[in-house]
Design a protein around this nucleic acid. Structure first.
Lengths: 257, 257
DNA sequence: GTTCATTGCGTCGAACTGACACAATGATAC
DNA sequence: GTATCATTGTGTCAGTTCGACGCAATGAAC
């Protein structure tokens, strides 16, 4: 069973397999070399790169479908994954434009084909540890790789808008959720954590105030080790105190009212 | 065209009219007599009360469908309305249980009828001014009325869960959005605004600190008038400074980082 | 006019925030 | 081996905010 064949199969049998009208797209964030990255796929159906997405099997929970898509693209289970918005504009998909692209691959689909119908898509965003991800092709894609957030100009259909919306959500969540755990390796230094925050917020923070604030949350454990090998003074390594981390995940970092 | 007839028509023609698989439900919050209220409908299809909901026309934007449902139930346009979560469990709907209820109303539907299929529903929550709402029946309901939040025990399908989720979202939004504008009349007193916050958060706040904080946001205008007629000192009336209010809606009340 | 719950305004110490100083560290250059 | 120097750990300090509470003014009820 070649990939091409399963792709054809999916296209042929999709209507029977999937919940109609509904799709999902994942904005998968990673952090590498002090830059925020997004995992994109090059869809066969288009010239453009796209967010990894998929459809929901008829007996499958929506959230499980998102977990499945993530697992298929990254090889990862047990990941921070959250829906953030539904994109339901009537005109958001224009698959008909892409019929010709299918043709180029020798795949003919009729004008009433299920793939050409209107889809309402649920946006999920995921935070993953860059080094653990093995970007994996699926049968409907030519490529699957990390993109630097700053290099992304135009994407398939409304996927750029979905991406921007996910970034907004991430920036908002940064205020009341302990984000670092999902994007950094288990052990990390304070400057690394700060770079992550600076990158997401796109603004520089005071080193000393940042440290005071983060330690103040009480969700970090300072280890005895330091990160040697840098050109200067070796910073301490930290890891998350999982008990307090989970508590903060539920309650939020700020009490609010 | 009697209501009963359009109900039958909708049931008969729905498959051709609506986007399959997708529905939406609205959690409509109001504030009255110092209590948080939710607008519910008594569905013909069930013994239970339900959230006002609907389906998406084939050429209609998802958000427009929510606006339409809200307009139909409340008579209101131009309302604070926001999607907050998608409920996509495969087992969330068990319409088959309710086939018998249709039968009681003399409506027979087959086992493959579109209404019995699986739906993924998008949850919207709305904040409305209680006094402006005219609860309006639709053709699929026996009743439509306000319920006190505390009196709601069990609802249709998973609607109680949807309601609880909306309330969580509202409580979270309270931290960074100027909420009062949508739930209170144009002119209101500080104690009234405080009661609203206390009701939503289910906890009492210090009168003086509340006032300092709210005025500190700079989105309120104190009017020259006072609310006479109360048994004691007449409190000043306030209204929202719309320019600063809209700015706060976009930027959030707290800077965060 | 007295009563009294409620409202407007203010105070005070504790906690937090932003800006910055200074010493310690550790690889690199010489 | 030692000087260099960017980077890190820790601390200070003034300005601001926050939670708790005091007190006088108000206005309907008696």
């Amino acid at each position: 069973m070649t990939p091409q064949k399963t792709f054809r199969e999916t296209i042929a049998e999709g209507e029977a397999l999937f919940q109609p009208s509904v799709s999902l797209d994942c904005v998968i964030f990673g952090f590498h070399e002090n830059e925020l990255k997004v995992l994109l796929v090059k869809a066969k159906a288009s010239e453009h790169w796209a967010l990894p997405g998929g459809f929901v099997f008829k007996e499958e929970d929506l959230d499980d479908a998102a977990i499945r898509v993530l697992k298929e693209r990254t090889g990862l289970n047990d990941i921070f994954l959250q829906q953030f918005h539904v994109f339901g504009s009537a005109k958001r998909s224009d698959w008909n434009v892409h019929r010709t692209n299918f043709k180029k691959d020798g795949i003919e689909i009729g004008p009433d084909h299920w793939l050409l119908k209107r889809f309402i898509t649920v946006g999920y965003y995921a935070l993953v540890e860059f080094a653990h991800v093995k970007p994996t092709l699926d049968t409907s894609s030519d490529a699957c790789t990390w993109w630097d957030l700053n290099d992304i100009q135009e994407l398939f259909m409304d996927h750029k808008q979905i991406l921007d919306s996910a970034l907004d959500t991430l920036r908002l969540q940064l205020n009341h959720l302990p984000i670092g755990y999902n994007l950094l390796p288990q052990k990390f230094t304070m400057p690394e954590l700060q770079k992550l925050y600076e990158t997401i917020l796109n603004k520089s923070l005071d080193r000393r105030n940042f440290q005071r604030r983060m330690t103040g949350f009480g969700i970090l454990k300072r280890l005895k080790e330091t990160r040697k090998g840098g050109a200067h003074r070796a910073p301490f390594l930290y890891s998350f105190d999982m008990r307090k981390y989970r508590k903060a995940l539920k309650q939020g970092l700020y009490g609010g009212w």
